[in-house]
Simulated assay, not measured.
Amino acid sequence: MAHPQMFDDADPFLARVRELALALPDAAEKVSHGRPAFFTTKVFAYYGWSVKADGEWVQRPHCVVVLLDPGEREALLADERSFVPPYLGGAGWLGVDLDLTDEASVNDVDWDEVAELLDASYRMTAGPRRVAALEQRG
């Protein structure tokens, strides 16, 4: 059974994440488990996630889930925007909310930081040839 789509293609947060992720060498997008996933041969980022709180699944529709090296991950865990995503958290993945309040807008996000998180996760998953291509681009 296919998962239902759990995102809005018109979401401005997703549009910006998509722009940043797909700018990386050989990056592509697919829908996995109802959410956008960005990958080369392996997934390097997801957009949106769900977490269990008080026995209920709570949607976090405006977040990125990335794979980080342990040092970066530990530092970011102290940030109130960060969370350990179910299923992937044990393998080093981390979620970062892009909107902590209902009033947050796409203009409130530090997109340079999001680009750095996507870049770091890409480097963990893309392989040496793609990382070298990324570095050649400057």
Score class of each variant (00 low, 15 high):
Gln136Arg: 13
Leu76Pro: 06
Pro4Ile: 01
Leu88Arg: 05
Ala115Phe: 04
Trp111Asn: 04
Ala53Pro: 00
Tyr87Asp: 03
Gly92Leu: 10
Trp93Gly: 06
Asp69Lys: 15
Val64Leu: 14
Pro4Asn: 04
Arg123Leu: 12
Asp108Trp: 05
Ala78Cys: 05
Ala53Phe: 00
Pro4Leu: 06
Asp110Trp: 04
His33Gln: 11
Trp93Ser: 04
Leu100Trp: 08
Leu76Tyr: 01
Val31Ala: 03
Leu98Ala: 11
Ala53Tyr: 00
Glu72Arg: 15
Gly127Pro: 03
Leu14Gly: 01
Leu118Gln: 02
Asp110Asn: 12
Ala120Glu: 03
Glu103Met: 06
Ala28Gln: 14
Asp54Cys: 04
Thr101Asn: 14
Asp119Pro: 00
Gly48Ser: 09
Pro36Ala: 07
Ala133Met: 14
Ala75Tyr: 01
Arg73Thr: 11
Leu24Tyr: 13
Lys42Ser: 08
Ser50Ala: 10
His33Gly: 10
Phe83Val: 09
Pro70Lys: 08
Ser121Lys: 12
Arg130Lys: 14
Pro85Ile: 09
Pro86Ile: 05
Arg129Met: 11
Val84Thr: 15
Glu103Asp: 15
Ala91Val: 00
Met124Asn: 12
Arg16Trp: 10
Gly71Thr: 08
Val96Pro: 07
Gly92Pro: 05
Asp11Leu: 00
Gly89Glu: 01
Arg130Phe: 00
Pro36Glu: 07
Gly71Arg: 10
Asp69Pro: 13
Val96Asn: 04
Asp102Ala: 14
Tyr47Thr: 07
Leu100Gln: 15
Lys42His: 13
Thr101Gln: 12
Trp111Thr: 06
Val84Phe: 08
Trp57Ser: 12
Thr125Glu: 05
Val106Trp: 00
Asp11Thr: 02
Asp112Gln: 15
Ala10Leu: 04
Glu19Ala: 07
Arg129Glu: 14
Gly90Trp: 08
Ser50Asn: 09
Val84Gln: 10
Leu20Cys: 10
Ser105Glu: 11
Leu20Gly: 09
Leu24Asp: 11
Val17Asp: 03
Gly90Met: 05
Val43His: 06
Trp93Arg: 04
Arg137Thr: 06
Ala21Val: 07
Asp8Tyr: 02
Lys52Val: 12
Tyr87Leu: 02
Ser82Cys: 15
Pro85Tyr: 11
Glu19Val: 01
Arg123Trp: 14
Asp99Ser: 14
Val17Gln: 02
Ala10Trp: 00
Val96Thr: 05
Lys42Arg: 13
Pro70Trp: 08
Ala104Pro: 06
Leu98Cys: 04
Lys30Tyr: 00
Glu56Val: 11
Val84Ser: 11
His62Arg: 15
Asp119Gly: 07
Ala21Lys: 05
Lys30Asn: 03
Glu56Arg: 09
Leu134Lys: 10
Pro25Tyr: 02
Val131Thr: 03
Arg16Ser: 01
Gly95Met: 11
Val65Thr: 15
Asp119Ser: 11
Val106Phe: 01
Gln5Ser: 10
Ala10Pro: 02
Phe7Met: 00
Asp119Arg: 15
Ala28Tyr: 03
Val43Pro: 03
Glu56Tyr: 02
Ala37Ser: 12
Lys42Leu: 06
Ala2Gly: 03
Gly95Thr: 08
Pro36Trp: 07
Tyr87Ala: 05
Tyr47Ala: 05
Ala132Lys: 14
Tyr122Asp: 04
